[in-house]
């Protein structure tokens, strides 16, 4: 086949554009094993529902003072004015409290969803939101399996509100505000690996006190926030249907097909065009 200069340039151009565009489309590898994330372990058997964490969080992040109290039958939710909440549940082992906030997934759906990298999994472990990048599309909210990011619907300059594990405090060498102010030592802060070891130890030493499950060890591919509980987690309103592998893996297959299509399609289309262009219609009237 003879390739004319013009056609050659055209093919070159199409290929060049495809390659240039492919580059940013690859899903980025994020291996939980390589990085030692920090995390928080919450032990529901120790929590007394005093709301100290709620107050400390509000004060530390400039949010209004918390309203309402943990009460059985009432499920309070985090929203644009509160990043963490403690609820009370009537369970098979009596009243149990449960703190809710961002899970800080190892491979967060919100981070993978964000097209401006405003949602960002830091090397330290917290997932943070960066206002100078965010365009307010709320795709992070659609993707998050725990419904964590909240949006200020009634603001002309809306922010995404979620727990950031007090990232600024961590950088200064301090613990998150909720951990520091927990009087019952229900919250401990440390390396995720150490926290899992500690949680296992507690389960082994007191097998009657805990269910043999660390929520967050494998949920959503592993999270930096870990839970211990005296009762099965579905009794505490946690999403137990959450898959064990990471959520970004769900769209990886699609993203990997993109470069393939970008290279194959133009070639294929040009080929079909060349193959059919001499098809003269039988009826010349139909042609233009």
């Amino acid at each position: 086949m003879k390739i004319e200069r013009r056609n050659f340039l055209r093919i070159l151009g199409v290929t060049g554009v495809s390659l240039a565009l492919n580059k940013p489309l690859n899903a980025k590898p994020e291996t939980a094993e390589d990085v030692e994330f920090y995390g928080i372990l919450y032990d529901a058997t120790r929590c007394v529902g005093c709301q100290s964490c709620e107050y400390a969080c509000a004060e530390s992040n400039g949010l209004p003072e918390p309203t309402g109290m943990p009460e059985v039958g009432i499920v309070r939710k985090t929203d644009e004015t509160r990043r963490t909440i403690v609820n009370a549940y009537d369970t098979s082992k009596g009243e149990v409290y449960l703190k809710r906030q961002c899970m800080h997934c190892n491979q967060p759906a919100c981070d993978a969803a964000c097209l401006t990298q405003a949602m960002h999994k830091t090397e330290e472990g917290p997932v943070i939101w960066r206002g100078d990048k965010c365009m307010g599309c709320r795709y992070c909210m659609v993707s998050c399996p725990f419904d964590v990011p909240k949006f200020e619907y009634h603001s002309a300059n809306p922010k995404i509100i979620k727990c950031d594990m007090c990232h600024d405090r961590l950088l200064e060498g301090q613990k998150p505000a909720c951990v520091e102010n927990c009087p019952a030592e229900a919250l401990i802060f440390g390396k995720r690996r150490d926290l899992i070891a500690e949680a296992r130890k507690r389960i082994v030493e007191n097998p009657d006190m805990y269910v043999d499950h660390i929520y967050g060890e494998h949920e959503a591919g592993g999270t930096s926030f870990l839970y211990l509980s005296p009762v099965p987690f579905e009794e505490l309103g946690l999403n137990t249907k959450v898959q064990k592998s990471s959520y970004p893996a769900l769209s990886k297959g699609f993203l990997y097909s993109v470069p393939t299509i970008f290279v194959l399609w133009p070639t294929l289309l040009l080929g079909i065009h060349e193959a059919t262009k001499n098809n003269h219609p039988i009826n010349p009237e139909e042609n233009e």
Binding site: N26, L115, T116, M135, Y139, P158
Partner: peptide, 21 residues
């Protein structure tokens, strides 16, 4: 919500390349 940042994914200061969006 923050349309003034709509250029961010275009001009290249913050490419969220793992995003379908």
């Amino acid at each position: 919500g923050r349309p003034w940042n709509v250029i961010n994914p275009i001009i290249g200061n913050s490419f969220g390349t793992s995003s379908v969006l």
